[in-house]
Design a protein around this nucleic acid. Structure first.
Length: 258
DNA sequence: ACGCGTGTTACTGT
DNA sequence: GACAGTAACACGCG
């Protein structure tokens, strides 16, 4: 259940561990979300060298030397696990066995994690590739709550429930603010917060996880955490439910509704 | 035991 | 068309 910073770290660690290795066997256990046949996937990727691993929005991307790309979306519960020769990995969706014996699997007990061969590249900007003009124009025409906008993958890719709260706290904007009423100075602050929060978390989580391919790190979150009652600056953290998700915020954040 | 859950999609209703 | 709310997916975890 990773968000953007975690995925950044996993991508880097996958690359460190498997770059330049040749994919010997690819095993598909669950194909219901796969966009091509198992055979086509195997034919396309087996025997080819892994060149690079990147993150785009909420997907990991495995780039192979033959130009093929495999996108992996972990959804809510997906996780990467190193392969262990002694025991079968549980809840496997697909596994990658590299020449030399090392490998990893994508697992998801809920079977929602999604591998996609050669995903279409998106027009929607990644959260770490936003420019001020785009964000200002986007916010100016939307009357949704700002948190909803930040999490809308059709508008900005990569921000989920946790980091939307973290970013909005950093920017001192209430998650319930209506996008079009947020003044220009606050939009600038929001852009700064998006970059700052996501980059800082990537560094911190990277240090904590070291070479790991999975694991949840909440240590560096400042408001979206059930074990905290106050923000770093001492304000009481408030929690509001929106459907199945929770929003964490404080009254340090300004509400723009007109 | 019971409630919770870092996501997406489909569908309803205003 | 824009937007809000809900269920379903399917099961481990504390």
């Amino acid at each position: 259940m990773p968000e953007l910073p975690d995925l950044e770290v996993f991508a880097a660690n996958l690359q460190k561990r498997f770059k330049s290795k040749t994919l010997e066997t690819l095993e598909v256990k669950v194909a219901k979300k796969l966009n091509v046949s198992i055979q086509e996937l195997k034919n396309t990727l087996e025997g080819h060298q892994l060149e690079k691993v990147s993150r785009s929005g909420k997907t990991l991307q495995l780039h192979f030397k033959n130009e093929a790309v495999l996108g992996l979306h972990l959804m809510l519960h997906g996780e990467l696990r190193p392969l262990n020769p002694d025991e079968e990995v549980k809840f496997q969706i697909v596994s990658f066995h590299f020449k030399g014996g090392d490998g990893f699997a994508l697992c998801d007990f809920q079977k929602q994690a999604t591998p996609t061969l050669n995903p279409e590249l998106s027009e929607v900007p990644d959260a770490l590739a936003l420019n001020e003009g785009y964000l200002r124009e986007l916010l100016g025409k939307k009357k949704v709550q700002i948190k909803t906008l930040l999490m809308d993958q059709q508008l900005i890719r990569g921000i989920g429930n946790t980091y939307a709260d973290e970013i909005l706290w950093e920017a001192k904007i209430s998650p319930f603010s209506i996008a079009k009423f947020i003044p220009e100075s606050a939009v600038n602050e929001l852009l700064r917060a998006i970059n700052h929060v996501l980059c800082k978390e990537t560094v911190d989580i990277g240090k904590k996880l070291c070479e790991a391919l999975n694991g949840e790190v909440k240590d560096f979150l400042r408001v979206h955490r059930s074990d905290l009652s106050k923000s770093p600056t001492g304000a009481e953290i408030q929690i509001e439910k929106k459907g199945a998700r929770k929003t964490y915020f404080t009254d340090e954040q300004l509400l723009y509704t007109v």
